[in-house]
Simulated scan of single mutants.
Amino acid sequence: MLTNNARSVKRILSTKEAVGVACQRTFATGKAKKGSKGGGPSDAAKTSTLSKEVKASTVVGSNILKKGTDPKILPAANYPDWLCQLLDKRPALSELRRKNIETLLYGDLKRYVKLDSRAKIKDNNSLKAKN
């Protein structure tokens, strides 16, 4: 019995010591002086090495090959029509609810059903949630 108590006291002490070491508070050093060595962030604004002309005419960062260059941006006529439609803003649920359901296009109707069912699920979950 005495040995069991001694073991539990050792465990408690070692646990407290571990918590004390893990919870020690340390303070960061002050800002590094200008010209000092260190990997801290610099106050100087970082400027891009690419010119505006290069940024406007190429897709910067899309090259995945070791020996290659970034592809040039082509005129809109060279791309498929669906690609430009990806940038169009899709209507929100509130806007779709204001429209007549029978006159909606198939894509908008499909979006309406998806957003409406998602909203109903959220409402049901919030009602069932424990407060």
Rank of each mutant, 00 (worst) to 15 (best):
L93G: 00
T47F: 09
D116V: 04
V19F: 08
L104A: 04
T103Q: 12
T69I: 13
A119N: 10
T49R: 14
L74A: 11
L50H: 13
I121V: 13
G35S: 04
E95T: 09
S42R: 15
I12V: 11
K33F: 07
R90C: 02
N100Q: 12
I12F: 09
S117D: 14
K37G: 07
L50Q: 07
A22P: 01
K89E: 04
R11Q: 11
L50I: 07
N124I: 08
V59Y: 15
T3M: 05
L93I: 03
T103D: 14
D70S: 05
L83W: 00
A6C: 06
G30M: 06
A56R: 15
L13Y: 08
T26R: 13
P91A: 03
Y112R: 07
K52S: 14
Y79P: 00
T103G: 04
G20L: 08
T26C: 09
V59F: 15
R111S: 05
K110T: 14
G107L: 05
A119R: 13
T29Y: 07
T69L: 07
N100G: 04
T69Q: 13
K72L: 14
G107Y: 03
N5T: 08
V21K: 15
L13H: 09
Q85E: 06
L115R: 01
L13E: 12
E53S: 15
S48F: 05
A22Y: 07
A92Q: 10
K72F: 10
P75E: 02
N131K: 15
A77K: 09
D123S: 14
S117E: 15
C84D: 11
S57M: 07
L104I: 06
F27P: 02
W82R: 00
L50T: 04
D43R: 13
I12H: 09
K16Y: 09
I73A: 03
Q24W: 03
N4P: 03
K114C: 05
A32W: 02
L74V: 03
E17Y: 09
V59D: 08
G35P: 01
L83H: 00
R111W: 01
E102G: 12
V60E: 06
G68P: 01
K114G: 02
N63A: 15
G35M: 04
S62G: 08
A44G: 06
P80A: 01
Y106E: 13
G35Y: 03
T47I: 11
K67P: 01
K110G: 03
R7T: 11
P80W: 00
A6P: 02
A18H: 14
K114W: 07
Y106P: 01
K128C: 07
S62V: 14
A22L: 13
L50E: 06
L13I: 11
Q24M: 11
W82M: 00
P75M: 01
V19H: 06
D43V: 08
A77W: 02
N4V: 06
Y112G: 02
A129I: 07
A45W: 02
A6I: 09
S62F: 15
L50V: 05
G61D: 02
E102P: 00
L127M: 12
Y79H: 00
S62I: 11
L93R: 00
L96C: 04
R90I: 01
Q85K: 06
E17N: 14
D81G: 00
S8K: 13
